[in-house]
Nucleic acid binder design. Structure first.
Lengths: 130, 130
DNA sequence: CTAAACCTTGTCGCCGACGTCAAGGCAACC
DNA sequence: GGTTGCCTTGACGTCGGCGACAAGGTTTAG
């Protein structure tokens, strides 16, 4: 299939597919007139890329998964390099969850404090000489 | 004080302070020779900015807090606009925590699956005709 | 006098995953 | 043969919070 069809079937754009190619992630054949030609396997590769991008991976992190698929494995995550990336990403996510949790607590406290202050000000305003 | 001293006291750079000024967050007076002159109140403003940036706010989100401080409040978060931003950010963080938690579960499952697959492959390799 | 250490404005660079033209070639249909 | 719609490469724009550099003015110390 040509780039337009692949883009539509993968739910993305032709520009995006050319970008993936420039990053070495997708490798289409070329037809006689220079058009990029993709097979079904490339569709699966693009799906893998999109799926991993969606959960916060960068293209560099995704490279091992694509290589794993291209090596003939039915899943992109069974190869050692992919597993290593998964472990690292899990650790990163855990770390980020911790920090985001701390941010949440701080936001919550700050909000509670601000509202308490506003109520106090309101009381003083309503009874200035209480 | 001049920009260099403020930068050092606020733990940042002169470039950063000029950038905040270009975004309308800091407003120094100018001395006769054109140098930016800051007072203590501006140091507190910069501290507020840095503190909020550190927990993931953008400069646009921070603007109401600075305005609140500049309006004479002892804390930047007691004004209605600031409270509104705090509420919105808390909601955003909660949302992000949810999605990140989902990502974590997915990563965890994917990792468990990949390892299970590898062990299975390993067993088949050690006992090809079992 | 000069060097050092400040300051000024202006401009370009960075990161990452693309969007968005521009200018042209190729294919198919009426 | 003209129009439409696909495709090609190339290059610049986006977002945010600055870093880094250039080319110059100011002030202070020796």
């Amino acid at each position: 299939m040509r780039i337009g069809e692949l883009a539509e079937r993968a739910g993305t754009s032709a520009r995006t597919l050319r970008y993936y190619e420039s990053q070495g992630l997708v490798r289409p054949r070329r037809s006689a007139n220079g058009y990029r030609m993709y097979d079904e396997a490339e569709l699966r590769v693009v799906h893998e890329i999109r799926s991993l991008l969606a959960i916060g991976f960068g293209l560099d992190d995704i490279r091992p998964f694509v290589a794993c698929l291209r090596a003939g494995h039915h899943s992109g995550d069974v190869c050692p390099d992919s597993v290593a990336v998964l472990r690292r990403k899990l650790a990163e996510v855990d770390d980020y969850l911790d920090r985001l949790g701390a941010v949440r607590r701080r936001l919550h406290d700050q909000l509670a404090h601000a509202i308490a202050q506003r109520e106090e000000t309101c009381l003083r305003t309503r009874r200035p000489a209480d």
